[in-house]
Design a protein around this nucleic acid. Sequence first.
DNA 1: CTGAAAGCGCTAACAT
DNA 2: ATGTTAGCGCTTTCAG
Lengths: 338, 338
Amino acid sequence: MPTIKDVAKKANVSIATVSLVIHNNNRISPKTKRRVQKAIDDLSYHPTRSARGLVSQKSGNIGFILTEDHFTRSEPFYSQIFLGTEFIARNYEYYILLTTITPNFSGEDRLPRFVLENNVDGIILAGKVPDLLIERLQEYKLPLAFVDYYPSTGNFPVVMIDNINAGMQATQHLIDCNHTKIAFLAGDFEHPSIHERFQGYKMALEKAGITFDERNVISDLPYPSRKYGYQAVTRLLSQCPDITAIFACNDAMAIGVLRYLKEHGLSVPHDISLIGFDDVEADIYLDPPLTTMRVPKIDMGIEAIRLMVDFLNNNISNPRKVLVPAELIVRQSTCSAA
Amino acid sequence: MPTIKDVAKKANVSIATVSLVIHNNNRISPKTKRRVQKAIDDLSYHPTRSARGLVSQKSGNIGFILTEDHFTRSEPFYSQIFLGTEFIARNYEYYILLTTITPNFSGEDRLPRFVLENNVDGIILAGKVPDLLIERLQEYKLPLAFVDYYPSTGNFPVVMIDNINAGMQATQHLIDCNHTKIAFLAGDFEHPSIHERFQGYKMALEKAGITFDERNVISDLPYPSRKYGYQAVTRLLSQCPDITAIFACNDAMAIGVLRYLKEHGLSVPHDISLIGFDDVEADIYLDPPLTTMRVPKIDMGIEAIRLMVDFLNNNISNPRKVLVPAELIVRQSTCSAA
DNA sequence: CTGAAAGCGCTAACAT
DNA sequence: ATGTTAGCGCTTTCAG
């Protein structure tokens, strides 16, 4: 591999000149610039990352952290976001370094290697991450950005689904179908996204003049999975058998709900309308295909990188929040109330 | 961030000694070793990646290349493989750098930036990649490893599905169900995997004493997608209406086939049995759920990293090939012939 | 057993 | 407008 010295020699200039040409500094005469450029092209020279990194104290990498359970879960929600970051990072001349951490991150656990080794210029955190991790990360004065989660304290760039709006839209769709007894299946209320969807749910009810009934809400699920969706609806139907529509906070739960209803001879959508959230790939193959709120997962990754790069390049002091809209996808699991 | 100098000062030794301690060199007395280690711990010092990289000429990164169309296609086959590499790389203290290239890579196109900038120690290529790219990459004397593809020339570490076996198994399953008129829907015959599955198909037929019939094979599809599966079966049924079973080379095509059959009043599996390949997430939601060959995508990524790291650490000269087995998953799209 | 010093390839302040 | 030079933080001979 040619080095800057080879170029300098070939173009009969000093390495400083070569460096200046590379950075397109206009102190260099057009003539030498051309000569140097030719040498660069002839040798097909490219500055080496580590040498550059050493002097500039910039790695050219962005870290991406998520908890192990989020990485390995079957619904590829966060991996889609990650792929979104990978997809766009290229345009900004960054590479993404992925790592997972344990959800129970404690004082014993060491920080991701890329932090310790100074190998990232900023970090994107996806999904719920332990507060302690965030604190420890801040000691390294690394720019942080959050996707689909934000910590209760601190002012960071954040990409979130417009959950309130989406929650409203989903509920409104059911209301438009003349439903009034609408159940809300939350996953983990600790998660801000879920809580926001719940706000939207309540707002839509209120706007339609429907009294909110606490018994229609199941909010103590340990995890928003198929299994717990199945379980939740069991409980729901016993405590309020008259509901005609269910808003499940994600598609995994909705799939569990659907299975329960079918197994118990309840027709979807004729007996009960069902709307999910996320728009996972399986939705269209369900019977009936699931009405849901489509979340632009790839876009969320893209937006996160944009925020980070913006920050890195311009040192913006006032962090931006971006809300990505979810889109109502009407399929066949919802219909007018009888 | 503390540097090696800080540690040296704190432990009252030279930076050379610190470096030796870090690399666990036994020329250092246990006593100084302990003292230095304490200083390292107290300062929570970690060598900086770029400094290390500069002198060692090792980046600590492994590149992952796939073509754009493979990255963006809806069936997340290669992204699963990629996630497998990400998953395991951590254990070997490597990071993965992903990049995509155009499928029509030509002389005009520049190589991935991580190659030019000397930012990877080796490269994994997933899926079919242009020959020219491989040639150009070899000029950089970077170790290469292939997943789910291998070039016609050259001797590289390779991870492949055991396609011949899998093709046999799938076909054998249909034969076990008393089928004899079994169609084979290839995607792109250029791809070695498809060709191998075809070998397996023929071998199973032969073993069962069933004469191979060329008309039962559709092999001129531009791309193995739902759309082309749908199209292929149209043609297939017109040219040999008596087939009772179809082996589609991937699930995407199988899904297209299934749609066609349902739309044309043919029952799966009663009129026609259908087996796919890949085991994508949607399979279990299909009606009927799809019998298929499960491909361990994550494992393939893991194996690829293993091969690469083996090579990087031991400079193995005789590249290994690993064949990962596919597993027959019997669901409800196949049954005994009438 | 430990230290001095050279140098990896580059950037940027300072000279000229 | 261009060159000289001092590092960036580390590894690794080579001396002692």
